[in-house]
């Protein structure tokens, strides 16, 4: 039996090692800061208050430039989401969702005249994009397209901690002497990139970090939280990063819930099968 356990442990170990192997060690930027999230670990869930605060930061700050094309308003009322309330079975009937959606103007077509019109949003609509198309986004932002935020927290190594680090007070720094930035560039120690081209100092001491087109977006009291939380820059950065993780992985809470049931079932079932196996092979040498 011991041998079998070793074999399985080895197999699991190899796979585990693969899973945690830092593929391409990026050493040119600061590793994202350690943040405690409510959703970390196998039992962690979203903090609804935090998601509501983060949503407010996204809406009042980020959404001026960043789209969130893949997220619908009604998703805000789904289990785990910022507006979820158990008594509203359908998210599209949730009054908070409806009221929130109504405040947005959505592009549509008048079916009588064919004219382009704006109408108030409904729960079925998605967050409207701030720019008509990527060319407009590029033109308005000095040639850099602000990335869509629907999946940002999954599309960056480090996830929400990376987003937090970039926009927290620790991210943006005055460029060290010897680093030449062009207008519209900002130095951020958490940004991946290669600064050796812009560095005029000692070639062996190229500063870590990279340049980012986005000016520092957050500051103390940039928003006023409805729940009375003090809107420090750090708080805003955490909240918006948590919200963006929700936006990227809205089914996370269900995933872990179902996962727990599946794991319990599989452990019991495997135990039963082992008992059956022992019984069947009882009188057979092998």
């Amino acid at each position: 039996m011991l041998r079998k356990v070793t074999v399985w442990a080895a197999a699991l170990g190899v796979l585990g090692a693969l899973a945690v192997t830092p593929v391409i060690a990026a050493t040119t930027h600061e590793e994202p800061a350690k943040v405690h999230w409510s959703f970390e670990g196998p039992f962690g869930t979203f903090d609804q208050q935090q998601l509501q605060r983060g949503l407010k930061v996204y809406r009042e700050v980020c959404s001026a430039c960043h789209s969130m094309n893949l997220v619908s308003f009604q998703a805000l009322g789904d289990p785990g989401g910022p507006f979820f309330e158990a008594k509203y079975k359908k998210s599209s009937e949730n009054p908070y969702v409806k009221a929130f959606a109504k405040d947005f103007q959505i592009d549509d077509v008048d079916t009588d005249t064919g004219d382009k019109i704006k109408r108030p949003g409904t729960p079925a609509d998605h967050f409207p994009a701030p720019f008509a198309n990527e060319y407009a986004a590029k033109a308005s932002n000095g040639g850099a397209i602000p990335p869509d935020m629907s999946l940002l927290a999954k599309a960056r190594e480090g996830g929400p901690a990376y987003i937090y680090s970039i926009v927290s007070a620790e991210g943006y720094k005055a460029p060290p002497a010897g680093l030449t930035l062009t207008p519209g560039q900002h130095y951020n120690i958490y940004m991946p990139g290669d600064l050796s081209g812009a560095w005029t100092g000692d070639p062996n001491k190229v500063p870590i970090g990279g340049v980012i087109a986005m000016p520092p977006p957050l500051a103390d009291n940039k928003v006023t939280y409805d729940d009375g939380t003090k809107a420090t820059q750090d708080q805003e950065a955490k909240d918006v990063a948590a919200f963006l993780y929700w936006a990227a992985e809205p089914k996370q809470d269900q995933r872990k819930q179902i996962g727990l049931a599946v794991m319990i079932y599989l452990l019991v079932f495997t135990g039963l099968l082992y008992a059956v196996y022992r019984k069947v092979w009882k009188n057979e040498s092998h």
């Binding site: 619908s72 009604q74 599209s92 079925a124």
Partner: peptide, 15 residues
């Protein structure tokens, strides 16, 4: 979910 959400429509009868 998106199919279920897109459920209601408003119409101006004066047309």
């Amino acid at each position: 979910a998106d199919t279920l959400a897109a459920a209601s429509v408003e119409y101006d009868l004066s047309k």
